[in-house]
Amino acid sequence: MSNIKYILGHFDDPEVLMNGIDKLQKSNIKIEDVFTPFPIHGIENKLGIKRSRLPIAAFIFGITGTITAFSMVYYMLVHDWPMNIGGKPAFAFPDFIPVMFELTVLFCAYGMVFTFFYVNHLFPGRAPRVMDLRATDDRFIIAIDAKTNDVNAVDAVLKDAGAVEIKHNARKYISYDEE
């Protein structure tokens, strides 16, 4: 048993999974992570995941876009080369708004998504840190560190909670290089 690194509890239903998380937590078993094929509502509260700060990042990126666009248009049309268009003022603010809006959206979207990729270590070519292949198909998987927990006790709790399958993995992640 000593070469088990991770215990994976497979569930086939999100509601049973949530009960499973409760039961494990009641037995003071620390959950390493949960892998699911789609987002489960309310799971972040159970696992104590803090609210994402991405919306704040999105706002800051967006406002950066607004300021960039305004500064650019102001510099070009008012400061650097004001044009006399029928004697109208060069600083025609309403005309600046469309470009300011577009750049706000552009900066916000790209800034936020690339922050998301950065914090989750998502980039093309990254080796997927997947513990079980069915987590992207039809299984809801709770991963528990086998080194710091009693394997038999964890197995018993998982079985009791309705896990359809319990796996003992000798390595943390699946190797995508082996065939």
């Binding site: 992570d33 949960v34 892998f35 699911t36 094929p37 789609f38 987002p39 489960i40 799971i43 972040e44 696992l47 995941i49 994402s52 991405l54 919306p55 999105a58 916000c108 979207a109 936020m112 998504v113 998301f116 990729f117 914090v119 989750n120 270590h121 998502l122 980039f123 093309p124 990254r126 080796a127 997927p128 840190r129 997947v130 513990m131 987590a135 992207t136």
Partner: peptide, 21 residues
């Protein structure tokens, strides 16, 4: 796939990103 693994934190951020986009 950019190394997507479907962990709880990833999904939480993914949902935030989707909503704001």
């Amino acid at each position: 796939s950019f190394g997507w693994n479907g962990s709880a934190k990833t999904w939480q951020r993914f949902e935030a990103v989707s909503l704001i986009l």
